Computed example of a mutant assay.
Amino acid sequence: MKAVTELAGRGVRAALVSTDEFATWEEPVSWWPRLETGVLEPLRAGAPGVYRRVDWSSGVPLPGEEIEIDVPDVLVLEGVSSGRARIRPSLSLLVWLDGGSETELLDRGAGRDGEESRAELRRWQLFERGWFAVDGTRTAADHVVHASGP
């Protein structure tokens, strides 16, 4: 599957890579080398990037389809750890999305993924709290966006 689109007919080719396509409950951020070697390094060299998406459709993470990313004009990295200290020197812009309180986020996640995922989502939240504190992601952000609602 190819993952580059044109932005609103403006001739700007953009690609979106979500960390959700790499992360699992057991591997929340340690997958980063796969993103670097499969996507970031090839794109920097002017070559297409390739990665295998994690498929969650069965409720457990399994290897999914292969995604090819042609060299875009703009690459958007989205999700937990996409603004990590290691990549910041290469970023043009870092945006932090404040999605609400931990309780609101947990309820929204369980509503989306099913009540049976609540314990894993809570464990994930606790990991995120520590990750962001150590990494300093929010304080390094160029912009903080406060989102509200579902």
Rank of each mutant, 00 (worst) to 15 (best):
R52E: 15
W131Q: 08
E21L: 15
R122Q: 15
P150Q: 14
E66Q: 09
L106C: 02
T5C: 12
G130Q: 12
S30L: 15
T139K: 13
E120F: 09
T19S: 09
L126W: 12
R10E: 11
G111N: 12
L75D: 00
R112P: 02
V39H: 07
V145T: 01
V39N: 08
L35W: 02
E128M: 03
A140P: 04
H146P: 07
G79A: 09
V80D: 03
L105C: 11
K2A: 10
G100C: 04
P28S: 04
V74Y: 05
D135P: 09
L91N: 06
V54N: 11
D107P: 04
P150V: 14
G59C: 07
S148H: 13
R138A: 07
K2D: 13
E128K: 01
R138F: 06
G59F: 01
W25N: 06
W96R: 00
L93F: 10
L16M: 09
L106Y: 00
V95P: 06
G11L: 11
G9R: 06
E115R: 05
G9P: 09
A3M: 08
S82C: 10
P150I: 13
D20F: 09
G149N: 06
G99H: 05
E6S: 12
S117A: 14
E116I: 14
E128W: 01
Q125A: 03
W96K: 00
V74G: 03
A147W: 15
P89F: 08
P48V: 10
S92V: 08
F132D: 05
L126F: 15
P42A: 04
W32C: 06
D135S: 09
R44V: 10
V12G: 05
E26M: 11
D142G: 09
V71E: 03
V12E: 11
